[in-house]
């Protein structure tokens, strides 16, 4: 059975809760299991065996204290990718490196108007030195090495992403400070001299290290699962707004940027 047939892979999961009373409960101790795609897998056990905890972990609602859990949302090697306007790809250096064929599918997806958002989630685990890179960044480099990656730039202040729904100067997640990298826009400072582009100019790739999903994750009560770094309540709001803006950018493209021209167009009507 190859990993491609699995939808959940858990290795040596551990999770301990601290009750309000102060006592600690070990819900999961060294649990490993594989769930096959399409298979009906039953989780059987007495009350308090950790069934709920496992499912919560699988849903990303809570994070394990130890071990490794992978829930495969989209299998880039097998699933039809063209349905997705955006693929959010948190880089996990522990996950197996995708096959060449899978990378080629991602490449084709990007060529046909899809966008991949890579999240290395390592804004603060990078070393200080210029050469130091986290394992997640190295993995990202390995992946990008096989893709047709256009020239990138941090989102400029006049980019559509900064105004596709909310006005947003930056794109924090659980961490703040990492720029969001997008395809470098061509010299378009002069509106009369707009470059002609084959596509619609929507970036096929976005890269961040801010761990968006970490900031969005909430439990069943809607309470956040992970603290933001730095611990600023507005940062989570901005992280959600960043998500909305990214999604709006995916669905409406550069709609917002040509709203600048609408008054002129309306002016011209009827002449």
């Amino acid at each position: 059975m190859s990993d491609g047939d699995l939808s959940v892979i858990a290795k040596n999961l551990r999770k301990t809760f601290r009750r309000d009373t102060g006592e600690t409960v070990e819900a999961l101790a060294d649990v490993s299991l594989d769930v096959r795609r399409g298979a009906l897998t039953a989780l059987v056990g007495p009350d308090g065996a950790g069934k709920t905890t496992l499912l919560r972990l699988a849903c990303g609602l809570i994070v394990p204290d130890g071990g490794n859990l992978q829930v495969i949302g989209v299998d880039i090697a097998k699933d039809e990718l063209s349905f997705y306007p955006l693929i959010y790809w948190p880089i996990d250096p522990a996950a197996p490196m995708p096959s060449q064929a899978a990378i080629a599918r991602i490449d084709a997806y990007m060529q046909q108007g899809g966008t991949v958002l890579f999240d290395t989630r390592d804004q603060f685990s990078n070393g200080i030195g210029a050469d130091s890179t986290s394992p997640a960044t190295e993995r990202l480099r390995d992946i990008l090495g096989n893709l047709n990656v256009p020239p990138l730039e941090p989102v400029p202040s006049d980019h559509v992403l900064t105004k596709s729904f909310f006005i947003l100067p930056e794109f924090p997640g659980r961490f703040a400070g990492s720029p969001l990298w997008v395809e470098a826009s061509l010299e378009a400072s002069n509106a009369d001299n707009r470059p002609v582009r084959v596509g619609d100019g929507v970036s096929p790739i976005m890269i961040t290290a801010n761990d968006f999903a970490g900031a969005w994750a909430v439990d069943e009560n809607g309470d956040p699962l992970l603290p933001t770094v730095p611990n600023d309540p507005m940062q989570r709001v901005y992280a959600l707004r960043a998500g909305v803006n990214i999604m709006m950018y995916m669905l409406t493209g550069n709609y917002k940027s040509d709203q600048v021209h609408v008054p002129v167009l309306l002016e011209r009507l009827g002449q």
Binding site: L251, Y255, V262
Partner: peptide, 22 residues
Amino acid sequence: PHAGERTWRNLLKSDASVDLVH
């Protein structure tokens, strides 16, 4: 906003004879 919005939009934007108000 929906997944097919950009299809109509891009088509009309790339048509040189069309002025699109979206």
